[in-house]
């Protein structure tokens, strides 16, 4: 029981450290949906790789690097059609709502932003309701 809660806590500390490092060093919010969108759609005029692209490469290297030392395999839990619908909704929702779990849930709440506290409560509630009905 303790071990099953220690790793999530350690992982959370790393995520918090990564996010505050980006703010303190580069003055940027570590909202993954926004950074990913910028990396894909807003690269005009940048010499070489833009910083959002570099961040996304870091994410992939972090994930891929961990895989080298772990035999954990994560699998998709739903069929193809619900998977595509869910992907669309996550994309539309994070774009329309200006943030996702990282931007609102960590960086926003971490600055005690009213918008982020409300958004996080709403998406956790709608996520719980949906997961409870679907799964």
């Amino acid at each position: 029981m303790i071990a099953s809660l220690i790793w999530p806590l350690v992982g959370g500390l790393l995520i918090g450290l990564a996010a505050i490092l980006l703010l303190l060093g580069n003055g940027r919010i570590a909202g993954i949906s926004g950074i990913f969108s910028q990396a894909l759609f807003e690269n005009k005029g940048a010499k070489g790789l833009s910083w959002p692209m570099v961040f996304v490469i870091g994410l992939l290297l972090g994930g891929g690097g961990y895989r080298l030392f772990s035999d954990q395999v994560f699998t998709v839990q739903v069929g193809i059609v619900p998977l595509i619908i869910a992907g669309l909704l996550v994309g539309v929702g994070s774009s329309l709502g200006s943030g996702c779990t990282s931007g609102h849930g960590i960086c926003g709440i971490g600055r005690l932003s009213k918008r982020s506290i409300i958004a996080t409560c709403v998406f956790i509630a709608s996520g719980m309701l949906t997961a409870t009905i679907v799964h």
Partner: peptide, 18 residues
């Protein structure tokens, strides 16, 4: 900084089970 932050973030997501 962006690279290290991305790396730590990715690692954190894996380690945490998220």
């Amino acid at each position: 900084v962006a690279l290290i932050s991305g790396l730590l973030f990715g690692l954190g997501l894996m380690v945490s089970g998220m």
